[in-house]
Amino acid sequence: MINKIVQTMADALAGARDGMTVLLGGFGAVGQPSVLVEALIETGVRDLVVVANNAGGGKGGLAGLMEAGRVRKIICSFPRSANSTIFEELYRAGRIELEIVPQGTMAERIRAAGAGVGAFFTPTGVGTKMAEGKEVRDINGRTMILEHALRGDFALVEAWQADRWGNLTYRRSGRNFNPVMAMAADTTIVQSQHIVDLGGLDPEHIVTPGIFVDRVVHVPYGDPPF
């Protein structure tokens, strides 16, 4: 019997190691696997490369991981927000590397990794700083730049419902990067608000099929903070 549901955070994050690349779902406070991130801090791993849209707000979650000095580099589209003070302090002090990626390019680089595509040409960023050092080609009359797939060792994902095969649904704008990241890591780990019996999810409504998921942990976290 396949059962991807694990009972402890230690089991969920087994195999975490220094220097690995971690994909973190979420956009703003919605859809963030914040309990898995707290558990990642507990594992003590360091020198991490984190891929996330935002550079963490407030104190908990990703901000906490950065504050604990565990993140060597962050790859994101929008590090600035009203309360991203921990990131900004580290960045100004030169204690964290930053790679800025246009949001759609970031999503597509991750999707490409999940789909086995090594790189792709996109018009986004042509003629800007983002194009520096990248291969340029005219395709169907349009100038495009080459962007490479972006893969993770771990993907940490928040879902609304999960079953023991790892089939997932999401809640409203909590979907965001989660399904794309779930496809693009060696090990995809899910914190799910609800666990349902196998067969309890309408196959027409499953957003992430279990083939992309390795471990699920039940975290009835509740609503994201306002």
Binding site: S77, F78, R80, T105, G125, V126, M130
Partner: peptide, 16 residues
């Protein structure tokens, strides 16, 4: 501007 630059989706939107 000496704070970290933040591009978000602007480049994708402008190009797309």
């Amino acid at each position: 501007n000496d704070t970290a630059p933040a591009v978000g989706g602007a480049m994708d939107l402008a190009a797309g």
